[in-house]
Amino acid sequence: MSKVTGSNSPENIDELASEYVLGTLSAQQRNEVRKRMATEPELRAAVDGWERRLLELTEQADAQTPSPFLWRRVQRSINSSLQQGSSTAATSWWNLLPLWRSLAASGIAATLVLAAVLLLRNAPLNETAYLVVLVAPQDKAPGWVIQTSNRQEIQLIPLGVAEVPRDKALEFWTKGEDWQAPVSLGLVKPGQKLSISLDKLPPLAPNQLFELTLENPNGSPTGKPTGPIQFIGRAVKVI
């Protein structure tokens, strides 16, 4: 070995990115790359570079005309998510597509969220309120709601009791769009309702990411999310 390289050396990052784009990584490795891309600009840039380099190889696959039903299916799927709220021009909480898309999986949870939103609407009118629905990444089932009527404090409300392995804990994270890395908001017990002060962080902003990951009982050893994401969602402004 003429050169010692850590797992985060530019060479290793580029190698990981190249095999991710080429397609040879396992499901688990692919998941890890996707997660890391959200917080690691170097990895994201390396992946973008490989997407660009290899794109022309898509020409090796013969084009194939889709059945005439395929477009109708696409259209139906889009319209069914639009129907939830197209009657008003102003952007309102009932007109937020990402919110409804994330809720499509569960009508019961939608009712709970509606209740939470109605509570929010009693908040003082001069405050900007935010709502986050945290859903499971695989089946999009909502598990938690975050509500706030004040940009310095949030409430995390469980919609059920999440299952956590005995030797693991749920850790709560947030990351604003222009932040370098997620910040831990502490450990959360399944089913626990929690008020968290954000006074050491920038004020809550639209699209701010929140997630719950599975970590060691004392929290992530690195100070960054290391375990699989259990629930994830972004802040939407409630007007």
Partner: peptide, 28 residues
């Protein structure tokens, strides 16, 4: 692009109906 995308998906998943599902999800 749907025909080219379907071609790409078909080569990977190997099945017509599955490939159409992939292209459906892609457009969504």
């Amino acid at each position: 692009e749907s025909a080219r995308l379907l071609g790409v998906a078909k080569r990977i998943v190997g099945d017509n109906a599955l490939a159409e599902d992939i292209v459906h999800d892609a457009f969504i």
